[in-house]
């Protein structure tokens, strides 16, 4: 997939500004909190690529409130995850378009991860922005075909009666949709 950091930045800025009116400022990748929400989609084609969007809960709540035009504190966790998943879906769709390969886009998956900054594999492409005073990070990486069960479940989180799998290491077959 021929995409560089500048393209990834442009796609993200276009989506956040056009759809949400949010101002994004590119920054050097920085770790600001251990616990992050991660929304991911998988592009299944010649090579399977995962697009991940990471933000802390405060930022994601703020973005979701913009998307829903809702008052502060009025959204449910499901609504916040839904909004986050849609952002990943839009970024993933546009990344797929830039790559120009015949591929399928999965439905988005949303998870909460701990210690996420130590989980990125070498060779992934990532870009970061300051958004409303918090960090919004976009990561592109190849899907891992074989992962340990420990890695798969490391950041799993139960929300209600639904299990959101860790997005940091799954095979295409385990990338199930958020219902």
């Amino acid at each position: 997939m021929q995409i560089d950091e500048q393209m990834l930045q442009q796609i993200t800025v276009d989506i956040c500004q056009t759809m949400l009116g949010l101002e994004l400022t590119p920054i050097t990748p920085d770790v600001e909190a251990a616990r992050q929400l991660v929304a991911s989609v998988e592009i299944r084609g010649v090579r399977d690529t995962i697009v991940e969007v990471l933000a802390n809960e405060h930022l994601m709540t703020s973005i979701a409130e913009v998307m829903f035009s809702s008052e502060r504190g009025s959204l449910s966790e499901n609504e916040i995850r839904d909004a986050f998943g849609e952002i990943a879906n839009m970024i993933g769709g546009n990344v797929k378009g830039v790559a120009g390969e015949e591929a399928q886009l999965s439905l988005p998956l949303v998870a909460a991860v701990e210690d996420w900054q130590n989980r990125f594999p070498h060779g992934c492409l990532r870009t970061s922005f300051d958004c409303c005073g918090s960090t919004l990070m976009i990561v592109l990486r190849e899907a891992v075909q074989q992962v340990s069960s420990a890695n798969q479940t490391a950041a799993a989180q139960i929300q209600g009666d639904r299990l959101f799998e860790c997005s940091m290491g799954f095979s295409p077959g385990t990338h199930s949709p958020v219902q």
Binding site: D14, I15, T18, M19, N89, M90, G92, G93, N94, K96, G97, E102, A103, L105
Partner: peptide, 25 residues
Amino acid sequence: TSETDPTKMARAMMAGADEFLMKPF
């Protein structure tokens, strides 16, 4: 839709879609 693949767009139009709007819009 977020789908930007021209082949898919053509398939949707062939199936009877009248227009196509890509996200973001």
